[in-house]
């Protein structure tokens, strides 16, 4: 089981810290533009659609479906090397955006495109003062 998949500490900036801190609280936080209504991910300091500065944040459902995936059998870099085979995926979350992530909590051979999944947070490795987490997804 790839439940022992470990994650390097994500490098956060002022533009993205809100996302990672949200994960630390167990919330998948997305951005919505106050001007045009676009929902975007990854987070940024402006709206990618209209370049407006009025960015608001909301807690998404954390539910979605596997858009596509691959079972990775070779990665020469730790901690992924010892986690092979692990599942890398694009998950389309119910609020719209797709997020690059891992599928955990099931045998890699059982993962299918279209499979319903929900978010599952894990504390990353490495040093950092903040209470951050990394969003993976598991079957629901």
């Amino acid at each position: 089981m790839p439940g022992d998949l470990r994650h390097p500490w994500p490098a956060a900036s002022w533009e993205t810290l809100g996302f990672w801190e949200g994960c630390g609280r167990g919330e998948l936080v997305l951005q919505r533009c106050r001007d045009c209504g676009a929902v975007q991910h990854p987070p940024r300091g402006v709206c990618g659609q209209c370049l407006g500065a009025g960015i608001s944040h909301f807690v998404a459902s954390g539910r979605g479906r596997v858009h596509t995936f691959t079972v990775t059998w070779q990665n020469q870099i730790e901690p992924f090397r010892s986690a092979c085979p692990y599942v890398l995926a694009w998950v389309e979350i119910d609020e719209g955006p797709r997020i690059l992530t891992n599928i955990v909590g099931c045998d890699p051979g059982r993962v299918r495109i279209g499979m319903p999944v929900e978010v599952d947070f894990a504390r990353p490795e490495g040093q950092g003062e903040e209470d951050l987490a990394v969003p993976r997804f598991r079957p629901r």
Binding site: H7, W9, A11, W20, H41, I77, F80, L88, G126
Partner: peptide, 21 residues
């Protein structure tokens, strides 16, 4: 298959933690 490790670049932070090669 070697460029999926950690990174100090916030732009890579949405890729690096997940082991994308």
């Amino acid at each position: 298959t070697g460029m999926g490790g950690g990174s100090r670049d916030p732009g890579r932070a949405f890729v690096a933690p997940f082991g994308l090669t």
